[in-house]
Simulated assay, not measured.
Amino acid sequence: MKRLSNSELKSNFIAWQCRLRQMAMRDHGGTPMPGFRPQVSSLKGEIIIPEMTILLVPNNPEESTAFFKFQLQKTNDHRQAFEAGLKYLAADFYQLPELFSDEITAVFAKGSAIAERLAKLKTVLLDFEQYAQRYRLSCAVKRLAPRDISREASLWHNRLFNPNLGNDAEVLSFRPNWKNAMAEPWPG
């Protein structure tokens, strides 16, 4: 069995995530698939969240953030904004995995006890699984600041699916430690 470099494993994971998201947007109306709803555990193995919906952050999220923001602010008809956003995401948004960073984000309600706990732990395990593929990632956790571009990208993306999401929502960033990542089966 060939051992992949950390960079190759990261690329395989992001490509897998992009494929799942293409399917979700094109075939399932944007409904999150199991593969992008990892189980979150402490390093001691305690399950903190059975499923947490995560987002991939583009390397340069300004364009997509501006698009989502424009669609949501130009009309009072959320359905219209949702359909435009879904069409955008289903087109070629996830076509090129190399355009995404390995930063993973998750959005929580203001004052979320779970978000507070995750931020205090500083490192958690994310277990992903779908279609006989599994990944386990040890991730550094941090709360994103109000003007952080990844936070803005996450909020405007999520507002397509939840128009009531406020500016005071908590957004956490998860950065994988690829040296300790595991995959089954091993890609390649």
Rank of each mutant, 00 (worst) to 15 (best):
R26G: 01
L99H: 09
M23W: 04
P187F: 02
A115W: 02
A15E: 06
K179V: 03
L155T: 05
L55W: 01
E98C: 08
K122F: 05
P32S: 04
Y135Q: 09
M1D: 15
P163Q: 04
Q22A: 03
V57G: 06
A183C: 07
F174T: 00
S5G: 05
E184A: 13
N167C: 03
W156I: 00
V57S: 07
L96E: 11
W186Y: 15
Q39Y: 02
F128W: 08
L96H: 12
K69N: 04
K44V: 11
F13I: 14
G45H: 14
R151E: 01
A84G: 06
P32E: 05
A140T: 08
K120A: 15
K142E: 14
Q80P: 04
P58K: 04
P97K: 03
E116T: 12
L118A: 07
R19P: 00
E184Q: 10
A181E: 02
T123Q: 15
L89I: 02
C139V: 09
P61A: 02
D77S: 12
R79Q: 10
E184G: 03
R175C: 08
D92V: 01
S5E: 06
G85C: 12
A66W: 07
L137R: 04
D27H: 09
K2L: 15
E98V: 09
L86I: 08
F108D: 02
I14T: 06
A113Q: 14
G30P: 10
N180C: 11
L55P: 00
A145N: 07
M182I: 10
K10E: 10
K69S: 08
A153E: 08
A84D: 13
T65Y: 00
P38N: 01
E170F: 06
L165C: 01
S5T: 11
A145L: 09
I48W: 12
L137M: 09
